[in-house]
């Protein structure tokens, strides 16, 4: 009888926990959906107020909507308790080159240039999909907060991948809270639309994978995002160029 009650209490506890998790997920979906609706509203208004809408207007809205849709999908996937992580050796320079090509339009629009330092011949053992997601997120932050024409450095330095921008930086008051979900800080309010979910999701990924995230920044002096790998998950091969 007693053990039955205990079991019952545990089940109730678990149900409460799952309900809370579901509520959190729903909040996230609403946040992303809100952003997507904003983009659609912009398009609708532009179409209603003008006979001809400039392609730049449309492209920006579509890119924004697509970005937030991707965030929504990844957030959902990440909320599942069982992941199908697939560890493999990944060549850093070719993965980063792929990611840069994928983001070419953003870079070109902002006249930004990537500086690739010491990436050649480095291989890391991890899940390609989520590692890629993390680099993409950190890179998109670097792009968002960089002044036009600046450079963004992607550098391998003893066991870590560093993504360094010369952008606005993060004020020391905001720094402790950047991983909180929905926190967009001073920068987020002032510049591009920000849901404040990017770093939260990256942190969530790193908690489940074999690398960690550190952010160093000073207001006005740019930001350095670091993905750190354990030594035995790194392989260095000869450079073939």
């Amino acid at each position: 009888m007693r053990s039955y009650r205990l079991q019952h209490r545990e089940s109730e506890h678990q149900i409460r926990h799952l309900n809370n998790q579901r509520q959190d997920q729903l909040d996230h979906i609403e946040l992303y959906s809100h952003e997507i609706k904003n983009s659609l509203t912009g398009l609708q208004a532009a179409a209603e107020n003008n006979d001809v809408v400039t392609s730049n207007n449309i492209l920006q809205a579509v890119q924004q909507a697509n970005y937030h849709l991707d965030m929504l999908l990844n957030d959902e996937r990440l909320s599942m308790t069982s992941h199908d992580f697939n560890f493999e050796w990944i060549s850093l320079d070719s993965l980063i080159s792929e990611i840069l090509k994928q983001n070419s339009t953003l870079f070109i629009n902002h006249q930004l240039i990537p500086q690739l330092v010491e990436l050649n011949g480095v291989q890391v053992l991890t899940d390609r999909k989520w590692f890629r997601f993390c680099i993409n997120q950190l890179l998109s932050n670097a792009i968002k907060y960089s002044p036009n024409g600046a450079s963004i450095t992607l550098k391998w330095d003893t066991n870590e991948l560093q993504i360094i921008d010369n952008g606005v930086g993060i004020s020391s008051g905001d720094l402790p809270r950047i991983y909180d979900n929905g926190f967009s800080g001073k920068n987020g309010h002032q510049t591009t639309k920000s849901t404040g979910m990017g770093l939260y999701l990256v942190k969530k990924v790193t908690a489940q994978l074999n690398f960690s995230l550190t952010i160093n920044s000073k207001s006005g002096q740019g930001t350095q995002a670091i993905l750190h790998f354990p030594g035995n998950n790194i392989r260095k091969t000869k450079n073939y160029t």
Binding site: S97, L100, K101, S104, T105, F107, I108, Q111, L112, I113, P114, G149
Partner: peptide
Amino acid sequence: EYLLESLWQGGKFLNDNT
């Protein structure tokens, strides 16, 4: 724009200045 996009897809990462 087309030149830059083509160069990027070929792995040459340039902006207007470069």
